[in-house]
Amino acid sequence: MALRPLTSYITSHNASGQAIIHSTVPAQWVRYDDDSLAFDVVYTTSSFPVDLNGEADIKAHDDLLSSGKLRLVQPGGTVCRIVDFAPGNKALIHRTKSLDYGVVLEGEVEMILDSGETVILGRGDVAVQRGTMHGWRNTSETEWLRMLFVLQDCRPVMAGGEVLGEDLAGSEIELSKKSEK
């Protein structure tokens, strides 16, 4: 894979109140669909607004990942995730109960909506997903695509007079289990 390895740098404060690096975390990838898709959970929060005092957020993040109970969205919190898509991957149409920011870091992606509407996003483009049914397809047959997603829990989404819940199209996946890419 031609995409460079990733590292997360988590900051904190020393006893004098100065900013320090608390920890350096190399990406830990979970692979799916015969290695055509890989996730790295960069960070999670379990409340909003988040409590940064006494490193409560770091402990909550570590506890959530080690519990194996993280799903696509963290109820009452946020999930920051990097997703790598293989060349020519197939789009899985899905909906999360969340407000998501999807940022293209490398490559080009086709965003597909269940209405049939599509748009091509390039490096630096941002999709703001508001509880909609959508999918992502890497437009390249030779290059990997990398996106950054921040998912925030939201109140139930209403459309057409009904509540729209999470819909993963039958693809339940364990997102907190780690395996090297």
Rank of each mutant, 00 (worst) to 15 (best):
R146M: 03
V157T: 04
E108R: 09
D125P: 07
I82E: 01
E108C: 07
V79A: 08
V157E: 06
L92R: 14
E141L: 12
V103Q: 13
L145R: 09
G161R: 04
A86H: 08
K97F: 13
L92K: 14
G88P: 05
W136T: 00
L105F: 11
G102H: 15
C154M: 10
T132S: 13
G160F: 00
L148Q: 03
D84I: 00
A91M: 05
T78C: 03
A159F: 11
S115N: 08
G131Y: 12
F85T: 01
I112F: 06
V119T: 13
T142K: 10
D100E: 15
E141A: 14
M133I: 04
D114E: 06
E141C: 09
G160D: 03
I112Y: 02
F149R: 01
Q129D: 14
I93W: 03
R95E: 11
I112H: 03
T139N: 08
A159G: 10
T132I: 11
V119M: 08
G122V: 08
K90M: 10
R81V: 05
V104L: 04
E141P: 10
R146D: 02
A127V: 13
R81S: 01
G107C: 15
T96C: 05
A91W: 02
G116D: 03
F149P: 00
L99A: 14
R123V: 15
L145P: 06
G102N: 15
L145N: 07
T96K: 06
L148G: 01
F85N: 03
V109E: 02
I93L: 13
G122M: 08
E108A: 09
V128L: 12
T96N: 11
E108W: 03
A91D: 05
I112W: 01
R130M: 14
V109N: 06
L145H: 07
A86S: 11
E141I: 07
R95C: 13
M158V: 01
T96D: 07
G116F: 06
T132Q: 12
G102R: 14
L113E: 09
G88D: 04
V128F: 12
V103W: 14
R95T: 10
E143A: 04
V79C: 07
W144E: 01
L99F: 15
G122E: 10
S140L: 05
P87I: 00
G122L: 10
M133D: 05
W136K: 04
C80P: 07
D114F: 07
T118R: 04
L92D: 14
E106R: 15
K97H: 14
R130D: 10
L105C: 11
E143T: 05
R130E: 12
S115A: 09
L105Y: 10
G161V: 00
S140G: 07
G88T: 03
G116V: 05
T142R: 03
W144T: 02
G107F: 14
C154P: 04
M147R: 10
H134F: 04
G88E: 02
N89D: 09
T96W: 11
T139D: 08
L148N: 01
M111W: 09
I120W: 10
F85P: 02
V150A: 12
F85E: 01
G161N: 04
Q129I: 15
R81N: 02
G122C: 08
V103L: 15
G107H: 15
G88N: 05
S140R: 03
E108Q: 12
D114G: 09
K90N: 12
I120C: 12
E106W: 11
R81A: 02
G116E: 04
G131M: 13
I93T: 08
G131A: 13
G131K: 11
E108T: 11
